[in-house]
Simulated assay, not measured.
Amino acid sequence: MMESGNKIALVTGGSRGLGKNMALALAKKGTDVIVVYRSKAEEAEEVVATIEALGRKSVAVQLDTANVHTFDAFFKSLSVILQEKWGRNSFDFLINNAGIDRRSAFADTSEEAFDELMNVHFKGVYFLTQKALGYMADNGRIVNLSTGLARFSTPGYAAYASMKGAVETLTKYLAKELGHRGITVNVVAPGIIHTDFTKNAFDAHPGLEDYMKTITALGRVGMPDDIGGVVAFLCSDEARWITAQRIEASGGMNL
């Protein structure tokens, strides 16, 4: 009989930033991790090595989550990996974390930038999750990533935040449609976090950090460690009765 702690999580965008932190937080709780990366193979392998050093199994797999047409081939190769490395034909947790940043004022947003955001943040999430269903174990977990920007408005993120709002609605529908399989579906919405994703914004606006502190109840900007544990908790047995929920981890921004 397989040990109860030997769950397998698939984390998109798992080679860096928040995804890396989620992967490590899951591993520290006893979960094996499939680290999905788009282009940073070396960074992904470093995450795998760190997870293995924690005593868990891990593997890095390449996928561009914006390219829906590659999903079938991805899952076919993943099923081989699951058999070879775990002796299983399924995994337990899907973390839809991969993301890109295309900041622009509404009036200046190009169709190209809109489509790039849409393909990663909504279309990719929708169809990757759909394709994953045949490879997910019953009583599993899906965690989608949203943003505080879906609750409050910051000019420059109209397209990005709208797609995250769509993900929040999708989360509720998935929770209802997958409930019969015991799969919970929740969304985590970070506030502003110090990662390579936000580095350009902090570098370009020297006063940004001080301003963010003033609008955040806990008085600081978030760190990746503030998010990974929330995702790991939602994948734990303790969170088994939580589904269709939006959990904002922003330190209390714009209250």
Rank of each mutant, 00 (worst) to 15 (best):
S162M: 12
V47N: 10
F93N: 11
A53G: 15
F106T: 11
L145C: 04
V59T: 12
A239H: 11
G228Q: 08
N254L: 08
M1L: 05
G140A: 15
E168R: 12
S110Q: 05
Q83I: 03
I242L: 12
L128P: 04
D196W: 01
R246E: 14
A132M: 06
A189I: 02
G179Y: 02
S15R: 08
W241D: 07
A217M: 02
T12F: 11
G191N: 11
F127W: 15
V47C: 12
F75L: 00
A175R: 03
S110V: 06
L94W: 10
L18T: 12
S236A: 13
Y157E: 05
W86D: 03
D101Y: 13
Y211H: 06
V59H: 07
A107G: 01
D237C: 03
N119K: 09
V48A: 07
G17I: 06
G165N: 11
I227V: 15
R151W: 05
T109H: 04
H205Y: 06
R181K: 12
I51W: 12
G140Q: 14
V36Q: 12
F233I: 00
L24Q: 14
V221T: 15
F75P: 01
S104N: 06
A25N: 02
A175N: 07
G165I: 09
T169V: 13
F114C: 07
A232L: 09
I193E: 00
K40A: 14
K172F: 00
F197I: 14
L208P: 01
A166P: 13
A113M: 03
G179W: 01
M136N: 11
K164A: 08
A175T: 07
R102D: 05
G182L: 08
D138V: 11
G14Y: 06
L54T: 10
F71V: 02
A244L: 05
R103A: 13
A132V: 09
L145F: 15
Y173K: 12
V120Q: 10
L26S: 00
K199G: 08
K199R: 15
G165L: 08
A150N: 02
A217G: 00
M118W: 12
R181F: 05
G17E: 04
L10W: 00
L63G: 14
L82N: 09
F202C: 06
K164D: 09
L54F: 13
T214V: 07
T198P: 07
S58L: 03
D72Y: 13
L10H: 01
E84P: 01
G228W: 05
D203V: 07
N6C: 02
G207N: 10
I247V: 12
F197G: 13
E42L: 04
A113S: 09
T12K: 11
M253G: 02
A9H: 03
G182Q: 06
L133D: 03
G124I: 06
A201Y: 08
A150L: 04
V231P: 02
N96I: 09
V125C: 11
I247Q: 05
T109G: 00
N119G: 00
G252D: 00
K172I: 04
A44K: 04
L63T: 11
V35Q: 01
S104M: 01
